[in-house]
Write a protein that binds this DNA or RNA. Structure first.
Lengths: 330, 330
DNA sequence: TTGTAAGCGTTATCAT
DNA sequence: ATGATAACGCTTACAA
């Protein structure tokens, strides 16, 4: 692999000139610049990233820390981040934490070691410590969940309002015993959605209509059964987790309940397959891609020298009413 | 940010000793080693990644190049890769190409610049040029699609056999006009699946039962309509793309066809929501996570010095028969 | 405008 | 076993 010295030799100039020419500094003779580019081309020269990073004391790398890239929400966010970051010359390193604070810590630790320029993180908890990163000059933006750290930007979604809206719509459609089904009751998004659900129901909220369970587990199966049968007998469900949705819908059919007509459903973040079911699913979909784009923009702006108060962006989810939450459907 | 020199000063040793101690070299007095670790700890010292990479002439970074991380197949693969790579100390950089050779080239180019240790790529075409990477010593493994480059490892899936098996099962279940619905007719996976479909059908294959369309487009809608109505009148469908599946299923219902009973369906790579539909979907699911794990293992082995012929791994997809491809269902 | 040379923070060679 | 010291390949004062 040729170095900048090889290019310099071939173009009969100094390494400094090669560096300047290749980095498009104005102060270099067009004639020489051309010669340098030609030499670099002929040698197949590629600047040595680590050396450059060492010298410049910064990298063109962003770290994305999420619970699970297999979650379509985070995958879409990652896509938005990568598309936007790449346009500004940044690469994206991917880290999955599985909501494990230890894994998260280690991910942030390597981010610090590698001197990444920025970190986009869906923190396991608001207390996650990103101060060392920020002290060192990295731009940090929290996505999906807030961070206590006052110097971090954030990109959140008003999922609480969306949950309230969805619940109200179910109410309007005539459902009376509307349940809430979520996983990870301790997580920020779930708490927000539950709060929105309760906002809409007011004093009518009935504790036994609220359930939490891990997707694809026995507890999920029995929670669903409980919800669908007496004494609970829900007649509609706000499903806060996309992972819980397939099994729930299956159970609804199993219990001979007609989706929409007998049993209303609004699901969160089911984007890919809402139309696979009939009647089609009513969904609250979060603007995951845009969140990634926005996070990237914040970081790029910060790294471009923008100073001042942290940016707090709150996007709105889209609520799409389809047959699954309409009594009059069919 | 403290450097190795600061640690050395605090521990009253040379930087060389600090380096050795922190990298666990045997040749260092346990006493000193402890002092060094303490000093490093107190200072919150983190080795400077780029400097280390420069000196070591290699990085602990892998680049993953896929068409779209939003595709659940690639997301699962990414997860498997990241989990496994992390265990060996590697980070994963994510690049989406959208099947665009230009974007792919630029992704490979930065991988080369950054001197990544390895590349996992689902190439846009077998002709994709990874030779410079390999010349430079990077380990390259092709996933999902093969690469002409003879020095690259590969992790493929026998999707052709799986398609044949699925088609045969439809045949056995009594369906007679089995269609094939795919997107991107020029891609390797689609060609394999179509070939498998034809393997099973033999001379009975009817050209007009084979359609290709882009997901969520007008062409998709009309292709589905054509397939479901005379003169084509398919009575079953092998859906080679998960993205095409929701709309197809919706259309089946719209045409008053009972899934399974009237119209058989086997879908590829629908893992998350196969159980949301009733009857549940028969699916061919590729071992995406395992592919990522395997790719990581290959790379780690290569980088650990393993030499010899390229590893060619072929995994088998799982074919799960459920109600959607059983005539006797209901 | 161009060249010389001093680092950036490590690791590894070579003495001691 | 430990310590000087020379790279690694690049960018950027500073000189010319």
């Amino acid at each position: 692999m040729p170095t900048i010295g090889d290019v310099a030799a071939r173009a009969n100039v100094s390494t400094a000139t090669v560096s300047r020419a290749l980095n498009g500094k104005a102060t270099v003779d067009p004639e020489l610049a051309k010669r340098v580019r030609a030499a670099a081309e002929e040698l197949g020269y590629r600047p040595h990233g680590p050396a450059r990073n060492l010298r410049r004391k910064t990298t063109a790398t962003l770290t994305l820390v999420v619970t699970d890239i297999g979650d379509p929400f985070f995958a879409a966010l990652a896509r938005g981040l990568e598309d936007t970051a790449r346009d500004s010359g940044y690469s994206v390193v991917l880290c999955d934490t599985d909501d494990d604070p230890a894994r998260e810590r280690s991910a942030l630790d390597v981010a610090l070691q590698e001197r990444v320029a920025g970190v986009v993180i869906a923190p396991t908890s608001a207390a996650t410590d990103v101060s060392k990163l920020i002290d060192h000059g990295a731009a940090v933006v929290a996505v999906d969940r807030p961070l206590d750290e006052p110097r971090s930007d954030r990109v959140l979604v008003d999922t609480r309002a969306a949950a309230a809206k969805a619940t109200s719509q179910l109410l309007d459609a005539g459902y009376r015993r509307i349940g809430y089904f979520g996983c990870r009751a301790d997580g920020y998004p779930d708490r927000q959605r539950l709060a929105g659900y309760q906002d809409a129901l007011g004093t009518n909220a009935d504790e036994c209509l609220i359930r939490h369970a891990c997707p694809r587990s026995d507890t999920a199966a029995s929670a669903i059964r409980d919800l669908l049968t007496p004494p609970v007998s829900a007649d509609a469900l706000l499903i806060a987790s996309p992972q819980l949705t397939p099994d729930t819908l299956g159970a609804v059919t199993e219990h001979e309940l007609a989706l929409g007509t007998d049993f209303g459903v609004v699901a969160f973040d089911v984007a890919a397959w809402a139309m696979a079911v009939r009647p089609a699913l009513s969904v609250v979909s979060q603007p995951a891609y845009e969140m990634g784009v926005t996070a990237a923009r914040h970081i790029v702006a910060r790294l471009a020298g923008e100073t001042g108060a942290p940016r707090h962006t709150e996007l709105s989810p889209e609520f799409v009413v389809r047959g699954s939450s309409l009594r009059e459907s069919r």
